[in-house]
Design a protein around this nucleic acid. Structure first.
Lengths: 256, 256
DNA sequence: CAGTGGTCTAGACCACAGG
DNA sequence: CTGTGGTCTAGACCACTGG
């Protein structure tokens, strides 16, 4: 039977669907526009809702769509370039109220993996600081910063026991140490419940986990574990924090 | 310990399952060990296979599991740290046969977004080079390197029209230019069919897309789009390419 | 309240790896 | 060939958002 170039090779339906939807997004939809609901779309394409959802999930993973329960599916704006500076910006950021905003700071214990990086015993008390990073009014990252008590020995004992005030004091002490270098890694993860809440996502949402080791005074002074929303963020490194690639083409970079 | 009572809040089953499995992986399984098959596991936990799969997908996303059609589900080794050097290593890597291994090189046309970064017209001919990066005998990344013809004017016209030989010649010419700087971004993506094949994954598999702009001679000499397997890789930056974080840092952090 | 996306079920068949 | 994970279906109910 000379099947007339039927589409049904062995490409999964959801994959083909994703392609079709992707092209439709490029041509027929504007950023922020809401799509028909899932049942409607599934019916329109003649597939089960689960299959349609598989395609939508992929597109959301790629930052093309945004889905919110009770609301609907909207066309996502291009990913935001977020600078993960090679410099000391975020180190002092909490102090100057720049990118990172301290939320809380308590004494606690570092997870085993973090303790290993700090070179401390797992039971050694550390300051555990919570910081949030905003961009354009949107929370894009949640961080846990682990600072061994031994890194900031001069912290006044009469400090507030916790809270944003204490956070600023810890950061100030860290800043006085100076920063000799840092060491960073990026990997894919899924948001824990607490991070998800800060980032306004559901638990399990894909995130980029940036682990940074800060060196000062000949040792590891602190370790930061920052989780960035993978759907909306593009991490940028290096000199110019304004790389411009995404699903949308735009000239930038005038030879000024 | 048996099932206690207050487990049944409104935590999704797959989320709870994931937690249980994760702990089981830590305590009862060795790296490389194969798990019972999905139907068996689903029955054992009293859930539908689809629900069990949702938990497995999360664990695979976090690099804890590896699943292969026709084979089974195995416990994954810790993610391998892959250095995304801040230096010129990979620039010359293809020449010295270091990390990146050139596979092919043809004349072609850059995608619109890449052309924008190159500052060239979308129709301008560019060398499109394919490179693969291996670590411990495993392909961890596939790259497309776009080099405008104008960046390597001295390339002999009598070169091979394509292939790995031509790739090396283009890299040699690039190397002669010298490297003034670079600009990098990392974002989450899903593997295209061709990349997936090189990386021995299924299309749509999660990848970390590293886009690098190389500056030389006062302009953008080349653009690289490298896709790293997100399940097995942890990208490292900075001085020491040997960050030591092991796996998960689950931090339940329950407010009293 | 009605409508949305999120979760879950109990099946079915397919593509692939391996003996 | 058998057994595995991958895809797909047609339902159901739940949790959340908004008016």
């Amino acid at each position: 039977m000379g099947t007339t170039q039927l589409e049904s090779v062995q490409e999964p339906k959801y994959w083909h669907l994703k392609t079709v939807l992707s092209e439709a997004l490029d041509s027929d939809f504007a950023v922020g526009e809401i799509l028909p609901n899932e049942r409607e779309l599934a019916a329109r394409f003649g597939v089960a809702r689960a299959t349609l959802r598989q395609a939508l999930e992929q597109l959301e993973l790629e930052g093309r769509l945004q889905r919110r329960r009770g609301v609907g599916t909207t066309v996502a704006p291009p990913r935001v370039g977020v600078a993960v500076s090679t410099a000391q910006h975020e180190w002092t950021g909490g102090v100057s109220g720049e990118a990172w905003q301290p939320v809380d700071c308590t004494m606690g214990q570092a997870p085993a993996a973090v303790a290993a990086m700090l070179g401390t015993a797992p039971a050694e008390p550390v300051h555990v600081m919570r910081r949030i990073r905003d961009t354009h009014g949107q929370a894009v990252a949640a961080e846990l910063l682990y600072v061994p008590a031994s890194s900031v020995p001069d912290l006044a004992a009469l400090d507030a026991p916790s809270g944003a005030f204490r956070a600023r004091n810890v950061l100030r002490e860290l800043h006085r140490l100076g920063l000799e270098g840092q060491d960073r890694s990026v990997e894919l993860g899924s948001a824990r419940a607490d991070d998800a809440k800060e980032l306004d996502r559901l638990p399990g949402a894909p995130v980029l986990v940036v682990t940074t080791r800060y060196f000062a005074a000949g040792g590891t002074a602190a370790v930061s574990v920052a989780t960035y929303r993978a759907d909306t963020c593009r991490l940028t490194f290096g000199d110019s924090g304004a790389l411009e690639i995404s699903h949308d083409e735009r000239r930038e970079r005038r030879a000024s």
